[in-house]
């Protein structure tokens, strides 16, 4: 069965992706700190989830049957905040409060401050475990939602990530989808030069995941993988999404430098020009 993805859907996602990427560089610049590189790499995955795949409703953010998204790489909050704002879960002007005192938009996503976030994360290696717990709860019922978790590649060096993945495989959680943002870089450099995680797809397979490798910036492939995951009933699905760190901003691409460093004023102008946006920080 072909998974029909219309041209209109693709064009619509590409349009929101551009908005999210502009927001990411503006937000991190305004905050004076943050993680643009990993937010840009995960942007298309988050965008596809929030606008297409997840069963969520801005009118009912606490709907018990809603699908759950756990952003285990909690430092990529700017991508999720922007997507949720565009989808109507929070006011767009709130985006510029990122990392400021009193803001609901914490440096790492925070459920206590912003309840639409399903799980506070940031200390790595914990998100998959919480997602496994949510998937178990959904299996017990009565609310049969699906759970999606986005994992960073540096996070694959953390032992508890594998504890949690092992549990997902053991319990055959077919309602769980783990998405790896494989952007190749962590804070200090490339994952393979620091502590290699390859062959990562084989590791997921060994942990009993139906494993799909995709280009994490190609919406047909992303939505196709989500559809394949929904058809997978024997156990959990892992999607290894090959992405580009800093995707969309040439000087942030393929480097660890902007993992945890925001753009300067000049860099922001350059980034916005590349992203086809009017120059200048918002307001």
């Amino acid at each position: 069965m072909a998974d029909e993805v219309s041209e209109e859907t693709i064009r619509s996602l590409e349009a929101t992706a551009l908005e999210i990427r502009r927001d990411i560089v503006r937000m991190t610049h305004a905050a004076g700190s943050g993680h643009p590189g990993g937010s840009l790499s995960v942007c298309d995955l988050v965008n596809a989830l929030v606008f297409q795949e997840l069963r969520i409703d801005p009118a009912r953010p606490d709907w018990p049957d809603r699908d759950r998204l756990v952003l285990s790489k909690g430092h990529a909050g700017p991508a999720l905040y922007s997507a949720l704002a565009l989808r109507g879960f929070l006011p767009r002007e709130e985006l510029w409060t990122l990392r400021k005192l009193g803001s609901r938009l914490q440096g790492h996503v925070d459920r206590g401050k912003l309840p639409v976030i399903e799980a506070s994360t940031g200390c790595l290696g914990q998100g998959i475990g919480m997602a496994v717990g949510m998937a178990l709860a959904a299996r017990l019922g009565p609310h049969a939602f699906r759970t999606y978790a986005i994992l960073g590649d540096g996070e694959c060096q953390a032992g508890p990530t594998w504890e949690a993945l092992m549990a997902g495989g053991h319990y055959k959680l077919s309602n769980l989808v783990v998405i790896l943002d494989r952007n190749l870089y962590e804070t200090d450099g490339s994952t393979e030069s620091i502590m290699g995680i390859e062959p990562i797809a084989d590791k997921f397979r060994a942990f009993r995941y139906h494993t799909i490798e995709i280009d994490g910036h190609d919406y047909r492939q992303i939505l196709g993988a989500f559809a394949e995951a929904r058809r997978t009933t024997e156990g959990p699905t892992a999607i290894v999404a090959h992405t580009v760190k800093g995707k969309g901003v040439s000087f942030m691409e393929g480097t660890h430098v902007y993992h945890g460093k925001p753009p300067s004023a000049a860099e922001l102008e350059r980034a916005l020009t590349e992203l086809g946006a009017p120059s200048g920080a918002p307001r």
């Binding site: 290696g125 998100g127 475990g129 997602a131 496994v132 949510m134 017990l140 609310h143 949690a164 549990a167």
Partner: peptide, 26 residues
Amino acid sequence: PDRFFNVGVMEPTMMSIAAGLALSGR
């Protein structure tokens, strides 16, 4: 047995799994 999860020797992740269950109404 349906409501009991012996996760093996993974105490840190047991806490995360417990949290995920609790955040989903358990």
